[in-house]
Amino acid sequence: MNKINLKIVTPEKVIYQNDQIDQVSIPTSTGEITVLPNHIPLVSILQSGEMVFKENGQDNYFALSGGFLEIKNNSEVVILADNVERAHEINVERAEAAKAKAEEQMKEIKNREDVDFARLQAVIDREANRLRVGNKYRHLRKSE
């Protein structure tokens, strides 16, 4: 009974859904939090980082960036993220290339509009996070 019902959703689709989760660790703007069943209701803002949840004693890793989360009364955790990816599904090479491209654009437009600047910074953050998480769990990808 004491399990978490976890939902991970992006604007484009439902990434993951399972109601047999033992614990979740989520990066939020006020630091990483770990949620156990029967957590009190909470709404918070997500930050780029690594999310881990335990299911049947096994750890699952995700890279996520931007968005918010809600913990409801009945051990329901909803994560509304802009970008979510399973750690071992991250294409490290592509993340590297994307980051390099964004950084290059950043140099070019340094003196232009703030909006573009913020957007590129977000892209760089996201790709850096993907890279970090992707590299960390590279072994998971190979073992499959």
Binding site: S29, T30, L42, S44, I45, N73
Partner: peptide, 12 residues
Amino acid sequence: SDYLFEPNPQSV
């Protein structure tokens, strides 16, 4: 009062 907002409702 059961609901917690981190860091605060405004920024959420």
